[in-house]
């Protein structure tokens, strides 16, 4: 579904990502793991078109998307739920969710809203509250809900567990699994290795801007190189 080929990307003169190759298949959860500063967010921003790669290509269902802008990429159904949520703090929860279907899924807006509220029942009580006043966990729910409103074909989740309490992290991962079981492909970009591997089908470990390890999630969990690659031990 997604094919990233020899991707190099960065900001101005600094190349953050070097020669990254990643593939994501239909209906998979693919985890992209790595500690702070290895280039995970750069990878996501390149995928969603916020930054342009310096070289290499990204294909989404065999269409080259690495030269397209974010609006076109959203149109095609690749939806990025960003790190730090990037909600509209001055808009209500309902308005935030509605804007998720600004370009895609507009005809089914009411139906999808109901579906999102079934997945995140807590948001029902918060529906007319402004998003800026929600707790971190609730904001993350709105961010994922906003992504789901656009009827994504692939969902790119950037650090969904960041800033959540351990109990909420557990719930969040269960929800991601549940969303995926409905048939949606997910790219899960995380620092939280153990829990990500427990729900992912396959995983890529990024260190120093390039893929250092990859494979099936259950195999990676047993791999002693994982610690080395991830923690630099």
């Amino acid at each position: 579904m997604i094919k990233i080929h020899e991707l190099h990307a960065g900001y101005d003169l600094v190349n953050v990502l070097r020669d990254v190759n990643i593939e994501v298949g239909e209906g998979e959860i693919v985890a992209v793991l790595g500690s702070n500063g290895v280039g995970k967010t750069t990878l996501n921003n390149t995928l969603s078109g916020l930054i342009k790669p310096t070289s290499g290509e990204i294909y989404f269902e065999n269409v080259l998307i690495s030269s397209r802008d974010p609006v076109e990429i959203v149109d095609m159904g690749l939806i990025h739920v960003p790190e730090g949520r990037k909600l509209f703090p001055n808009l209500s929860v309902k308005e935030n969710l509605e804007l998720g279907s600004y370009r895609r899924g507009k005809p089914n807006r009411a139906k999808n809203l109901e579906r999102v509220l079934e997945i995140f029942p807590k948001l029902r009580d918060r529906i007319s509250q402004t998003a800026g006043t929600l707790s971190g966990g609730e904001q993350q729910m709105v961010a994922i809900g906003r992504g789901l409103m656009s009827e994504p074909r692939i969902l790119l989740l950037d650090e969904p567990s960041l800033g959540l309490s351990p109990l909420l992290v557990e719930q969040m991962f269960n929800l991601i699994k549940q969303i995926n079981e409905g048939g949606l492909s997910v790219i899960l970009v995380e620092q939280n290795v153990i829990q990500s591997l427990s729900i992912a089908d396959r995983a890529y470990v990024i260190s120093e801007g390039t893929v250092s390890l990859s494979g099936r999630a259950d195999e990676l969990r047993e791999n002693s190189d994982l610690k080395k690659s991830y923690l630099g031990l």
Binding site: P82, K86, Y102
Partner: peptide, 18 residues
């Protein structure tokens, strides 16, 4: 809504296709 969204969160707006 898009106008009000853009007022506070430009990147978030781009990511929903505004």
């Amino acid at each position: 809504k898009a106008i009000r969204a853009v007022a506070k969160e430009r990147d978030g707006a781009r990511l929903v296709g505004i």
